[in-house]
Amino acid sequence: MRVFPVYAPKLIVKHARIFLTGVIWVKDLGRLEFEKGRFLLPRKSLPKVKQAILELNELIEAQN
């Protein structure tokens, strides 16, 4: 598990694309899981977490 002390979308996306499957922890967002290079949306999450995951997945799609 990698810990990101700040929310840096480009760096987080780079990590997810390299490792494809895993878990990261982002300060103020908490634990985020990714599989096959995409972030998974938890069943229950705060609106800011949901927005961050959608933003990260959009960045991943834009890079493909």
Rank of each mutant, 00 (worst) to 15 (best):
F4D: 01
A16H: 00
V49M: 13
R38V: 11
Y7L: 03
N57I: 02
V49W: 03
F4M: 03
G30Y: 03
K14A: 14
N57L: 02
V23H: 10
L54S: 09
E33N: 15
K50Q: 07
F34R: 00
Q63V: 11
R2V: 15
L20A: 10
L41D: 05
L11S: 11
P9E: 04
E61N: 14
Q51G: 10
E61T: 09
V26A: 02
N57V: 02
W25P: 00
P42D: 06
I12S: 02
I60K: 02
K50S: 07
F34Q: 00
L32G: 01
A52Q: 04
L54R: 14
P9Y: 02
E58Y: 11
K48I: 08
E58A: 11
P42T: 09
Q51K: 14
F19K: 12
L59M: 13
N57F: 03
I24N: 00
D28C: 14
V3Y: 15
G37P: 00
V13G: 04
L56I: 04
R17K: 08
F34G: 01
Q51W: 11
V13M: 06
F34E: 00
F19Q: 12
A52G: 03
R38T: 08
L20P: 04
P5N: 14
R31G: 03
N64R: 04
E61A: 12
E35M: 13
V6I: 12
L41M: 11
K44A: 07
R38Q: 08
I24S: 01
H15R: 03
S45F: 09
L29P: 00
L11T: 06
F34K: 00
I18P: 02
V23F: 05
V13T: 09
G37R: 05
S45E: 07
P5K: 14
A16K: 00
G37L: 06
P42I: 06
L54T: 10
L11A: 12
G37D: 03
L46F: 12
N64T: 10
S45L: 10
H15G: 01
V3T: 09
W25T: 04
V26E: 00
M1E: 15
I53F: 03
F39R: 01
I18H: 14
V49C: 05
T21D: 10
I12K: 01
K36F: 11
P42Q: 07
K36H: 14
I60Y: 07
L41Q: 08
K27W: 14
G30S: 01
T21N: 13
R43P: 06
N64M: 11
V26H: 01
V13Q: 04
Q51L: 10
E55P: 00
K14Y: 11
F34A: 00
A62H: 12
F39L: 02
E55T: 07
L20K: 07
L32K: 00
L40N: 07
F34P: 00
Y7F: 07
T21I: 08
Y7I: 02
Q63N: 08
L59A: 06
P42G: 10
K48S: 07
Q63T: 12
L40S: 06
A8C: 14
E55C: 06
L40F: 06
E33F: 15
V6M: 08
I24K: 02
I53M: 04
H15T: 04
V3H: 15
E35D: 13
F34C: 03
G22V: 03
G30H: 02
L40Q: 07
R17N: 08
N57T: 03
R38H: 11
E33H: 14
L20C: 10
N64W: 04
F34I: 05
L59Y: 06
L56D: 00
W25Y: 14
G22N: 02
L40G: 04
L56T: 00
L20Q: 10
A62C: 11
A8D: 09
L20F: 07
R31I: 08
L20T: 11
P47R: 15
V13I: 09
V13K: 02
L40E: 04
K36N: 12
L29S: 00
F4S: 00
